[in-house]
Design a protein around this nucleic acid. Structure first.
Lengths: 202, 202
DNA sequence: TTACATATGTAAGGGTCTCTCACTTTGACA
DNA sequence: TGTCAAAGTGAGAGACCCTTACATATGTAA
């Protein structure tokens, strides 16, 4: 996100990492102008290559967009794993950190975040389904520990889902600036803590 | 939603309600193919008029889409008001009904539901901001009554927002069929009831 | 009946896009 | 060094699209 990518320049005929450059350009353009209004041609202009070039790396426009989304998810999940390493397993702070991480990503890459739940329409890349399930498994495991349950039973499943619903909804609402006045005045961590306590209460 | 609209036929030169017909066509096409992939031309074909006709009723494509969204919101809110009349104010059932109504609308018109929070990008039609705030005011009033607070204070604001976040997130997650296996096994009313209890608890 | 306002149609300008084909450049490796 | 596959290029076919200008049909009111 930090890398405001300007039109790319190149001295050699070969790009070196055109695939990556196209994915970055796609992300930037979708964030700026929305999934509708995104065109492969624009991405080419931004990456500084001809409009035929992408088709050596992606079969179609849809596949390019999907590639950008998969890339975003991978970065998101790597960041999450890194952040979780700072918290001890089974703590309240760790659950709050997971929620904060989720919302933070949504706010920093709203376009990718939303597309992540729509790429299913284009035929789900297995990377998405798999890594998504893995991460949600972490949440369930954390909830299990907090509830002192021996395994992932129905109780754990319900509470985990409640947490997810809440954090997911908070992310979407936070992405709409016009709704900011509806939110309570405290910090986001306060809000996440309140939720964790209420959802995990006996 | 119920009205699977087929290509419209007309015997008279004048349509009678072309504006309404275009809005219905727009909704149907966006639900079927997504906001991207929606074109004014398609809407014209579906409504059975020339491609120039819409511009007597809407200034631009964006305005047509916005019109469809505003229409959807109005129908949604009318349905909500009607349904609420069956429940007594200040009851748990009434809060559950509000949540169920929200999710049900999202599931029946996912395209409109999502666009409702994105039309802000096109310059917010005041109809949207106003009626949205009015409806959310209902929620806050209901929460105030449940908490036995004398007015809409910070406590009420926080709890209302928690409810909204949850129901909003539940709506989005429910719209993705691939995530169905993550949900708990009970009914939606059970889930909504659990949330209401936990959020409104002392 | 006539005149006029309103609603729709026809045609087209001007633009953009996705994707393919045939060709060129380049780097790597036998 | 010579050969080949990979990665780019340029041009363009073929579609659509959004929007406008101007013509035409229709209902209404004098």
């Amino acid at each position: 996100m930090a890398d405001e990518q300007i039109k790319e320049r190149r001295d050699s005929y070969h790009h070196g990492d055109l695939r990556g450059a196209l994915i970055r350009a796609t992300r930037q353009l979708i964030e700026e102008k929305g999934r509708d209004h995104f065109s492969v041609s624009d991405a080419c202009r931004l990456a500084g290559v001809s409009t035929a070039a992408p088709y050596k790396h992606f079969k179609s426009k849809d596949e390019l967009v999907t590639g950008a989304v998969v890339d975003a998810m991978q970065r998101h999940y790597e960041g999450l794993y890194e952040e979780l390493s700072h918290y001890q397993k089974g703590t309240r702070d760790r659950i709050i950190a997971m929620g904060r991480n989720y919302v933070t990503f949504a706010l920093s890459e709203p376009g990718m975040f939303q597309l992540r739940f729509q790429v299913f329409d284009l035929g789900t890349p297995s990377e998405i389904e798999d890594s998504g399930s893995n991460v949600y498994g972490l949440v369930q495991e954390e909830v299990r520990a907090a509830l002192r349950e021996p395994d992932i039973n129905e109780r754990v499943i319900e509470r985990s889902y409640l947490l997810w619903c809440f954090v997911h909804g908070l992310s979407y609402l936070s992405m709409v600036p016009e709704l900011a006045d509806k939110a309570p005045s405290g910090s986001m961590d306060d809000l996440l803590g309140t939720v964790a306590d209420r959802v995990l209460a006996a």
